[in-house]
């Protein structure tokens, strides 16, 4: 089965700065993929390239289309929330539904109204009178009413309070994730999306440093909890990251550590946050892996 997104050797430059550097990955259908990276890592650039808003070198195929040349056609089957609270302030929810009905061939006004009833936004509400969290909910309700195959979300919860973020992710799970449609969600709030994801892509300084199904993380990476006496031995084994855990320290290895080192510690489940810290703070260990 063809993947929904196939990227090969993507490269984007802004003047002398390389925003994306030889990025290759693919996203099959029915996946919830987290695109993780610090600010300036290249997440937004990658998303804009995916929806055809910027030109990228390399090969890029999204839903079987060339995003740059077939942007309009692509956006008919791809829903995209590019930022937080960017709906036009002058419009009411009802006007946005009316406009979306005319602009998007796969938009269902009825479904949008149904979804909206599950939020605290009324159809007559003007966007400029809504809180940031309500605007995001309205935007997600509009986007979830599109019969699209792929949803691309760029930092959709940035700046929202905990309750709004929770409401957003609940709505996303309930109304979008059906096992058929895929989601690519960029964020640096790693811990919040971990439970949602099936796969993860990590970007660091424009390079893809990790592309892996979440289920494979435990197989590939090893975290060892250890006491102070084993610290030197752990450090000598060159872990990706050494960090503090409840009651001691831990070391994170890419692969299996040497048996004599493994014997000194207790195996822990490596968390996505630790992996994120490990892979996005040490450029020298950047590496690219296929999904």
């Amino acid at each position: 089965m063809d993947p929904l997104i196939q990227a090969q050797g993507l490269r984007v430059r802004y003047g002398r700065k390389t925003a994306l550097d030889d990025v290759s990955f693919s996203v099959p259908k029915g996946r919830v993929v987290g695109l993780l990276g610090h600010n300036g890592a290249g997440k937004t650039t990658l998303m804009k390239a995916l929806v055809g808003l910027i030109e990228a070198e390399g090969r890029l195929n999204v839903l079987g289309l060339n995003p740059r040349r077939q942007r309009v056609q692509l956006l008919e089957s791809l829903a995209y929330i590019p930022d937080v609270a960017i709906l036009p302030g002058w419009a009411t929810a009802a006007q946005l539904i009316e406009l979306m009905s005319g602009l998007h061939p796969k938009f269902s006004a009825e479904r949008a109204r149904t979804l909206l009833r599950r939020t605290s936004v009324a159809v007559g509400d003007k966007v400029k009178n809504l809180s940031k969290g309500m605007v995001v909910q309205l935007h997600l309700a509009l986007v979830a009413a599109i019969d699209a195959k792929l949803l691309v979300l760029d930092e959709p919860t940035l700046g929202l309070d905990v309750l709004s973020r929770k409401a957003f992710y609940e709505m996303l799970i309930d109304e979008w994730c059906d096992g058929e449609r895929s989601v690519l969600i960029s964020t640096h709030q790693v811990e919040e999306v971990e439970a949602l994801l099936s796969d993860v892509l990590m970007l660091n300084e424009g390079k893809l440093v990790l592309a892996i199904p979440l289920a494979d993380i435990e197989q590939r990476f090893t975290a060892l909890g250890h006491d102070a006496a084993a610290a030197d031995a752990m450090a000598a084994a060159h872990p990706l990251l050494r960090y503090r855990v409840q009651g001691g320290s831990a070391a994170l290895f890419d692969g299996t550590p040497p048996p004599e080192v493994a014997a000194l510690g207790q195996r822990l489940r490596p968390s996505l946050v630790d992996l994120f810290v490990a892979l996005t703070r040490q450029p020298e260990i950047n590496r690219t892996q296929g999904l």
Binding site: V72, P82, I86
Partner: peptide, 17 residues
């Protein structure tokens, strides 16, 4: 206008040329 009120990102996310 659309850049000033930041809605440009919304309009460009829709399938219109």
């Amino acid at each position: 206008r659309d850049v000033q009120d930041r809605s440009i990102e919304f309009w460009r996310s829709l399938p219109t040329s």
